[in-house]
Design a binder for these strands. Structure first.
Length: 269
DNA sequence: CGGCAGGTGCGGA
DNA sequence: TCCGCACCTGCC
């Protein structure tokens, strides 16, 4: 299926319309399943009222929380797809991640055309299992080839149940994810926030993120990860990682309109 | 040409 | 639990 999402509402009265493009086999049952799945992936039923109330009185970042009101952890992908993205993000610049992603999609993805667009759908775990590590390395993904193989094998063998993970508590889900080859604390953080909508305790801050938080929170070059983490958890409690993501997103949004010298030095495209 | 990038697995303290 | 190290590749 190809989907087009249209905004039909306002912040006060949110409403969207989903237009579905398909080549047959779309029935009423499919429609309900699709709606439920989209509601999960984009966390459409998130209740952010308590979060809004709390952040509205934040001494320092209240304007940030106001500007992004309604934002929540979400993503359009399946867990497998997001995990592959996570593997391709590791230890790479954005440019290189894009290059690896395009190489893989052209080799193993399916190009679909709908709504006057041509997009790639990712391969399935089973399909990737028939690809050798050597073939992957030829597409310049480096040591990530092994991760892609092992993750695909785990999913193809039914060892990862996305729906079971959705029902788990934060810590259990994190433990299960980190047991997978290629998923460490940073990829787990991305998955837990984007795919599972856990927004409570901050467990891990990657070095490059730590540098950005250091500037934003302390106006210093580098503050210890443990201190940033503890401060965030103390200040924002059950909403610590959601609050952190608001503040993090905001600085990148500001970057589009104003020059932030220190930020330019911290990021490489 | 070394250093490093939106990390991770592994072996050893 | 924590630490140091190797690891594909491409850009600076």
């Amino acid at each position: 299926m190809g989907l087009r999402v249209e905004n039909l509402g306002t912040s006060a009265r949110p409403s969207i319309r989903i237009v579905v493009f398909h080549d047959g086999g779309f029935e009423d049952g499919t429609k309900r399943e699709l709606r439920d799945e989209l509601a999960w992936r984009f966390h459409l039923d998130a209740d952010l009222r308590e979060f809004d109330r709390r952040m509205r009185v934040d001494a320092r970042f209240a304007p940030v929380f106001r500007r992004w009101r309604g934002m929540r952890g979400s993503n359009p992908y399946t867990l497998y797809e997001l995990m592959i993205v996570g593997a391709l993000l590791q230890n790479a610049t954005v440019r290189r991640t894009v290059q690896m992603t395009e190489a893989l999609l052209h080799a193993f993805g399916t190009q679909v055309r709908f709504d006057r667009r041509a997009l790639f759908a990712m391969w399935t775990p089973a399909e990737l299992c028939r690809v050798s590590e050597h073939q992957l390395r030829e597409l310049k993904v480096g040591y990530r080839a092994k991760m892609i193989k092992r993750l695909s094998a785990a999913f193809a063998a039914g060892e990862v149940d996305e729906f079971k993970l959705r029902a788990m508590d934060h810590e259990s889900a994190r433990r299960e994810l980190m047991a997978l080859y290629g998923v460490g604390p940073e990829t787990a953080r991305i998955l837990l926030g984007s795919a599972f909508h856990y927004h409570s305790m901050v467990r891990h801050i990657a070095p490059w993120e730590g540098k950005i938080y250091s500037r934003l929170f302390y106006n210093r070059r580098m503050v210890a990860e443990s201190r940033i983490r503890d401060d965030l958890n103390r200040r924002y409690g059950a909403y610590a990682s959601l609050a952190a993501s608001y503040i993090f997103e905001d600085v990148f949004w500001r970057r589009r309109h104003e020059h932030i010298a220190w930020l330019e030095k911290e990021i490489r495209l």
